[in-house]
C-alpha cells in the first residue's frame, strides 16, 4: 500500500472578487521510502501542493475537495490536534529559507530539545543526546558548540543542514522539501543534496522534493510530477521524463535549457508565459504556447492518461498514441 495517496485534490483561494482554483484535481501516490520530484515554473502550484499535504494552507486558501490518504487515514478529515501529531512526527517539512523554521531568539539546542520533548517523553539530557546524534548525521562540525549557538551565528549552508537534522529528529516517514537548496551556492547545494539523498535512503524516509531545477530533480528523485497552471501535466519515472518527455510543455522546458543548444546559438524558447490563475485559457492551459495545438486543444481540457510508462495530459500525445495503436492493429 502507498504511504501517501492523493486523489482529486483541489485547492481554491477565496479572493474578494472571485474564487480562483490553484490546484485542479491533483492525484498521485508515493510508496514508502520513495523520492518524488515536483517541478514546474513559478506559480505552477508546487508549494501550494506541499502546504495542502501538511494541511498548512492559510486563508484565503482552502482544500475544496479530494482526499489525502496518509498511511491509511484521510487527513483532509483529520482534526487539527491529530494533524499536529502527524506534522513533525510523521511528515516533516524543509523550506527554502531556514529562518521560516528556526526561531531567532532560541539556541539550536533549545529548539531541538523542545521539539523532541513536545512529541516524546524524554529527559532533557536524552533529548540533547538525540539532537547531537542528528547533528552528526548531517555532518555538522563541532555539534556540541552548535547546540549553544543562535541561528544568526551560522552560515546559510549550515542552517539548512540543521533544518534537515530537525526534520529527521522524530524519524518521520516523509519529508516535504520545498526548494531546499535554491538559496545556496552550487558547491554547498551539491553537499546538501548528497546528504539528503543518503539520509533518505539510509532511513527509508520518503521525499517530496519541490524545485524548478531539472538537474536537482534528476539527481535526487525516482519519479517526477510536472505541473503547469495548477495541474499535473506529466507524471512518471524521472529518467523517462528527462530523457523522453512527452508533454509539449515538458519538452519545451527541457529544450529551453542552454545545455540543449550549441554555444552562441539561439535557445529553443517557449513563446509567451504561464497564465495567471484569474486568466486560465479554456481547453488545455498550455494551448496558447503550444506548437501542436489544434482546435480541440483550445476547447477541451485533456485528461491525464497512461501513455507508455508515463501519464500525460495532452491531446496531441493521445492522437499520436492512438495512431500508433491503429498502425499496430493493421
Amino acid at each position: 500500500m502507498s504511504l501517501l495517496s492523493v486523489r482529486d485534490l483541489t485547492v481554491k483561494f477565496a479572493m474578494r472578487s472571485q474564487t480562483v482554483t490553484a490546484l485542479h484535481q491533483i492525484s498521485f501516490d508515493l510508496a514508502r521510502g520513495e523520492r518524488l520530484g515536483i517541478v514546474g515554473e513559478s506559480g505552477a502550484g508546487k508549494s501550494i501542493t506541499g502546504f495542502a499535504l501538511m494541511k498548512l494552507l492559510s486563508a484565503p486558501g482552502y482544500i475544496d475537495s479530494g482526499t489525502i490518504q496518509f498511511d491509511g487515514t484521510d487527513i483532509t478529515q483529520a482534526p487539527e490536534a491529530q494533524m499536529r501529531q502527524i506534522r513533525g512526527n510523521r511528515i516533516a517539512m524543509v523550506f527554502q529559507d531556514p529562518m521560516v523554521t528556526l526561531n531567532p531568539v532560541l539556541t539550536i539546542g533549545q529548539q531541538m530539545v523542545e521539539t523532541l520533548r513536545a512529541h516524546r517523553k524524554l529527559s532533557r539530557r536524552d533529548a540533547q543526546e538525540i539532537a547531537l546524534t542528528k547533528l552528526r548525521e548531517v555532518q555538522i562540525a563541532a555539534p556540541e558548540l552548535r547546540l549553544k549557538q543562535y541561528p544568526h551565528e551560522l552560515s546559510g549552508g549550515m542552517r539548512q543542514r540543521i533544518i534537515i537534522a530537525m526534520a529527521l529528529l522524530l524519524d518521520p516517514d516523509l519529508i516535504i522539501a520545498d526548494e531546499p537548496t535554491t538559496a545556496l551556492d552550487v558547491t554547498i547545494q551539491a553537499d546538501i543534496m548528497e546528504l539528503l539523498l543518503k539520509l533518505c535512503q539510509a532511513n527509508k524516509v520518503g521525499l517530496i522534493l519541490i524545485t524548478h531545477d531539472l538537474g536537482v530533480v534528476s539527481q535526487l528523485t525516482e519519479r517526477t510530477l510536472v505541473m503547469y497552471a495548477g495541474r499535473i501535466v506529466e507524471a512518471g519515472k524521472t529518467r523517462e521524463i528527462i530523457n523522453d518527455p512527452q508533454h509539449p510543455y515538458t519538452q519545451g522546458l527541457i529544450n529551453a535549457l542552454p545545455q540543449q543548444t550549441l554555444p552562441g546559438q539561439m535557445l529553443k524558447q517557449i513563446p509567451g508565459a504561464m497564465p495567471v490563475l484569474t486568466d486560465i485559457p479554456p481547453g488545455c492551459p498550455f494551448s496558447p504556447r503550444c506548437a501542436f495545438a489544434l482546435a480541440e486543444c483550445r476547447r477541451l481540457l485533456p485528461q491525464i492518461m497512461q501513455q507508455g510508462s508515463s501519464e500525460v495530459a495532452c491531446h496531441e500525445v493521445n492522437r499520436l498514441h492512438s495512431d500508433l495503436l491503429l498502425e499496430e492493429g493493421r
Partner: peptide, 22 residues
C-alpha cells in the same frame, strides 16, 4: 570544484569535488 558541483540531468549523483568548510 565549481564545475563538478553543477546538478546534471544525468543518472545519479555525479562525483562532485567536495570542499571543506564554507
Amino acid at each position: 570544484a565549481l564545475l563538478s558541483a553543477v546538478p546534471q540531468m544525468r543518472d545519479g549523483m555525479p562525483d562532485h569535488i567536495r570542499l571543506k568548510g564554507e
